[in-house]
Design a protein around this nucleic acid. Sequence first.
DNA 1: CTCGTTCCAGACTGCCTGGTCTGTTTGTAG
DNA 2: CTACAAACAGACCAGGCAGTCTGGAACGAG
Lengths: 200, 200
Amino acid sequence: MPRDGTATRSRILDSAERLVKVNGYAATSVDQVITESGTSKGAFFHHFPSKLDLARTLVQRYADADVAELREAMAHAEAATDDPAERVSAFVRWFEERDEALLGEESNCLYISILTERELVVDGTSDPILGAVVAWREELTRLIGAALGDREDAPDPEALADHVFVTFEGAFLLARSTGDPTTMRRQLRALRQMLEAVLR
Amino acid sequence: MPRDGTATRSRILDSAERLVKVNGYAATSVDQVITESGTSKGAFFHHFPSKLDLARTLVQRYADADVAELREAMAHAEAATDDPAERVSAFVRWFEERDEALLGEESNCLYISILTERELVVDGTSDPILGAVVAWREELTRLIGAALGDREDAPDPEALADHVFVTFEGAFLLARSTGDPTTMRRQLRALRQMLEAVLR
DNA sequence: CTCGTTCCAGACTGCCTGGTCTGTTTGTAG
DNA sequence: CTACAAACAGACCAGGCAGTCTGGAACGAG
């Protein structure tokens, strides 16, 4: 086997992820990706048969990392306490205490760039996003359902679970329009306080 | 003054809004807009000096309508009851009971398409979005602040106010990835229940 | 009716785009 | 050392893109 191309491939993916998160998919040209990654046309189309194929790889990689982070937060919450309601709090707080990668001003979510373009949804490029959404939903529905118990006026645990995803995506957008780097942290805090109130 | 061009201009704006909401701004070509609106290159560039200028007009128009809807919901909530907490509930419920335009499967938000592309943010195209965000924040902070009273452990009313905007945008994205048309309604319901719990 | 302005149609242009192709280098297997 | 395939580099291409330009049609003013 000849020289190793995985480093080049990773540089392309990293540059592409950054550019797509910042500018969107359609507004990002492969030439931009090539320039920023310091590679070439030949290298790009050697590793990815088309720009769309890059998008698919990108989404899959990002969604995998997203689910991994979910598991991590979930493990943390379950290790922290046995009380179901407190576990929900611990779960959200895990993200509140995250460093600048998630909370900073330049933070972005690849999902937004992909879901913005309907073509990428109908052709299946966004499928891994749905996979991640379902993973979040299932894990959190379990956690929240346990905290809700069997109250008669209990709200829909699945909707509450989905609302965590909703808060993340909505906060990313709000942060973009305001330019306020504290947005994500404040929204996560508000989410946690509301969940604590509804689970009380 | 010669013949009236406002109808043509409106057709262009309507088609463009639909296309941009569905496909994003960069992925929407001027030719597409021309075809869908049944006009021509000449008509388009007569009414809009550039594609970017179309985007600016589009965002301004959409944000104005958005703020108008805010005022409408606010007036409804204030007319419904005098109790501050119940006003918050009435406000959210106003949107829950909306018809398919907001809640249907094909519902979209122009804000997402615009905020996705950073260029449109830095060059000021997204400024009307910030105006709308601030309008929502101010009105809702007032409403929620009144409902919170002066409790010592009270959560940040501004963050809760912003969370309404966050819920809308996040739910739009969630609906896109799942394809479930009940998403928006369920998320609004969850938001209302959480607000009711935290304001109790 | 004439004149002038607005409104619009569509051919046209140059640039940028995603993608191809040819050639060269790099490493490994035998 | 030879052979061969993977890993690039960069010239090249066809199509699509935003934007221009010219000509004509539709009105109101005088």
